[in-house]
Design a protein around this nucleic acid. Structure first.
Length: 568
DNA sequence: TCCTCTTGCGCC
DNA sequence: AAAGGGCGCAAGAGGA
């Protein structure tokens, strides 16, 4: 066994249960020679028990997933940290695989990331199962050690000590996210197929015997629609055919969007809206979805840590972050277990209050219901107006009757409004903004120009494009700082959950869902109260770590339930 | 037939 | 006149 060390580089063998370890110090210097072990999981567990080092690996999916259900406390995920550093160094979009980082370090040709344009995905999935993109013959452990040392150097190079400390926190939190994502994919979200099936049957009629056939309720609605629109057959899933069918009845629609149909005075409009609602459930989360994603009592999506530039997670497969509320009844705790569901109330306006240090907004954010307090202070008690105004300010909305609301906010909360307006100006001028912990937004690109269709003149297109980017950077500082807080919460919560007394690893409370500002923990019933307390403590820890001495509070609304649908 | 683009809607 | 941020997914449209 290598000696105890604060960090270990870890590389699994390409085939089989073995792997290599090498002890490192915090700068990334080696503290001993590489050691090969025939049983990597056992060797890792031994070191973990000896002192919970930070495990340094190329990427969690190749290094951590094979070790599960082993739980590790800390890691440094080179691929995720490379992405953070590249963005911070204004080299946004450069490939972030271990191979790419190694190539940059050694002045070699940089391989594109898998899934990026120009990469033959098939070839790589066949010949590089670990997706590391290293040149053939390269010693993976050597590359891990070298790239890690280089990353530590780059973090150390951040000049401002406070910004450097926050970026270190970002590196740790993002890496903790990699642990959580791998564990959640492994454990899965409890999903009762029988309950799901009953919900679908209630909405759509029984499951069709022949796959691909329309369920009864959709077929009925189709027929009723056809009748209501003159009797000629048309496909309600085809926008152009729907537009034509309505036009034939003298109803000119600009689109087939539900909100537009809602204002249409024709009996077919309500049918169309209902058809779209049900057909969406059927297509996106129906029986085919269940067969593909929710087998064996668990829904197992793939989470993509840092999949959104703001630091929010994305997901691949199964629409994990878009589970319709109407189907959440299918998420039911196992017998003897419970779900602890906690979501941060009005996270983004609170983040704005903390970021901008606006004393007035911070006072408002001390209340349980921020919008209610805001309404009482500035909008004669009209909560809807307060919410609309604040969301409009955070998103850069200018339409509707929002002007007076924004004027009120600007007068009452000059620091907060100044903060988002300054972020917007930076974006319009082509600049880069950062989250609280230092996540950088991408620079302007042609994509912003593509937003504009049929411009009257280049100047106008440029103006629209600049304003679009201003809205993006305005929102980025808030959304990304909210993601900073959420990741810190996740890391703190995970640590607390792993410290709870569990009879065996299988009895341990574990995270099963995370959606931007909401977490769900699946826990043995007898530990539910302790889990609920742990969530609250983690939220407070995240507040202190990310925002320091802000008076703003980030309250959670927490529910201990048997079924996800019963939360809030 | 395959592929990319667009549309629309689910979630935050 | 136009005027709200971020995603993933499925289906249709339309070109190669």
């Amino acid at each position: 066994m290598p000696p105890a060390a604060p960090r270990f580089a870890l590389v699994p063998d390409p085939h089989g249960p073995g792997g290599r370890l090498q002890p490192l110090d915090d700068t990334g210097a080696t503290l001993g020679p590489p050691v090969h072990t025939p049983d990597l999981a056992a060797a890792v567990a031994e070191q973990e028990a000896a002192g919970a080092p930070r495990w340094v690996w190329a990427a969690a999916d190749s290094a951590y997933t094979p070790l599960l259900p082993l739980r590790l406390a800390r890691c440094h995920d080179l691929r995720l940290v490379e992405a953070l550093l590249l963005a911070h160094e204004s080299r946004f979009g450069a490939p972030r695989s271990l191979g790419a980082a190694w190539a940059r370090l050694n002045q070699l040709p940089v391989p594109p990331d898998l899934g990026e344009p120009g990469t033959p995905a098939e070839q790589d999935s066949l010949f590089a199962p670990d997706r590391l993109q290293l040149p053939p013959g390269t010693d993976t452990l050597r590359a891990v050690v070298a790239v890690h040392a280089e990353q530590q150097r780059r973090v150390q190079a951040i000049a401002d000590p406070a910004a450097r400390a926050r970026f270190r926190l970002l590196v740790a939190a993002e890496s903790a996210g990699a642990l959580v994502a791998a564990e959640m994919a492994y454990d899965g979200l409890p999903w009762r197929a029988d309950v799901h099936d009953a919900l679908l049957t209630e909405l759509l009629g029984p499951r069709p015997h022949i796959p691909g056939t329309q369920p009864a309720r959709l077929a009925e609605l189709s027929a009723e629609l056809q009748q209501a629109l003159g009797g000629r057959p048309f496909n309600p899933d085809s926008h152009s055919q729907v537009l034509r069918a309505f036009a034939d009845q003298g109803v000119q629609l600009g689109s087939t969007r539900s909100w537009e149909l809602r204002g249409v005075d024709h009996p077919a409009a309500a049918l169309m809206i209902r058809y779209k609602e049900l057909s969406r459930i059927h297509a996106a989360h129906g029986w085919a979805w269940q067969d593909a994603w929710a087998r064996g009592g668990r829904f197992r999506p793939e989470y993509v840590v840092g999949g959104v530039v703001s630091g929010r997670w994305a997901s691949r497969g199964g629409g994990a972050l878009q589970i319709p509320r109407i189907l959440r009844g299918a998420v039911v705790a196992d017998p003897g277990w419970l779900l602890v569901v906690a979501d941060a109330a009005q996270l983004e306006p609170r983040v704005l209050a903390a970021l901008s240090r606006d004393a007035g907004l911070a006072r408002t954010a001390a209340a349980g219901d921020l919008y209610e307090a805001l309404a009482a202070t500035a909008f004669q008690g009209d909560r809807d107006k307060a919410k609309l105004g604040l969301l409009g300010a955070m998103y850069g909305q200018t339409s509707g009757d929002i002007g007076p609301l924004l004027a009120t906010l600007r007068r009452r909360y000059p620091a907060a409004m100044g903060y988002v307006e300054s972020a917007a100006r930076t974006g319009e001028d082509g600049g880069v903004v950062h989250s609280r912990l230092g996540r950088a937004c991408p620079p302007p690109s042609d994509a912003w120009l593509d937003l504009t269709e049929a411009p009257d003149s280049a100047g106008e297109a440029g103006g629209r494009s600049a304003r679009a980017r201003g809205r993006f950077t305005r929102n980025f500082v808030i959304q990304a700082s909210a993601a900073d807080w959420a990741l810190a919460l996740l890391a703190a919560l995970r640590r607390r959950l792993n410290a709870l007394p569990a009879g065996s690893p299988a009895d341990r409370p574990h995270l099963v869902f995370f959606q931007h500002d909401e977490v769900v923990v699946h826990t043995p019933a007898n530990l539910a109260d302790q889990v609920a307390a742990a969530v609250a403590e983690a939220a407070e820890e995240a507040r202190l770590l990310v925002f320091g001495d802000t008076p703003v509070r980030f309250p959670l609304s927490t529910a201990v339930v048997d079924c996800y649908a019963d939360a809030k």
